[in-house]
Amino acid sequence: MKKMKLLFSPLLLVVKVIVRVQERNFVLQNEIDNLKSICKEIPGALASFVGYVRDFSNGTKISSLTIEHYPGMTEKMLVDISKNASKKWPLLGTLIIHRYGKLNINDQIVLAAAASLHRKAAFEATEYMMDYLKTSAPFWKSEKVNKDNIWVKAKLDDEFAKNRWK
């Protein structure tokens, strides 16, 4: 009997999910190569997003950033976000790496990536994962301004960005 190949049924595709919350830095190319290598089929498209530490926040110069997280819940939320992305788009694999601890200006903070057969799903899923990460993953940033550490306030814009996927 001829095997039927259903390319666009997300439920039938085996989606690889990688989530890591770590202090150490990451190398974008290595992470992308790794995600690509574990996909069940060759992804024709892989989109990625990297977030960096800015030197200005609301017009104020900052010298460093410290990120706190809730161990256990953070990973759980990131896996949930990844799985939800896989339900919305026909993905082959997803990747989220988020750092914590003290970071300097220009340092990499976060990497989100999605692999798919076609670019639209990869682009949209990456954006979706970032929008949900921003509002649902328990991380808190504290910015060093002069000698003070100031907790960053959540932005309403991030909430709006998430709601457009509903």
Partner: peptide, 26 residues
Amino acid sequence: NKNFADFDTLINEEDEIAFFPPVTGG
């Protein structure tokens, strides 16, 4: 227990409750 909850969520002795401000990662 590591799931978002509301102020009217019922709780038990063995629960882990966490309080925090709105998240600001990414």
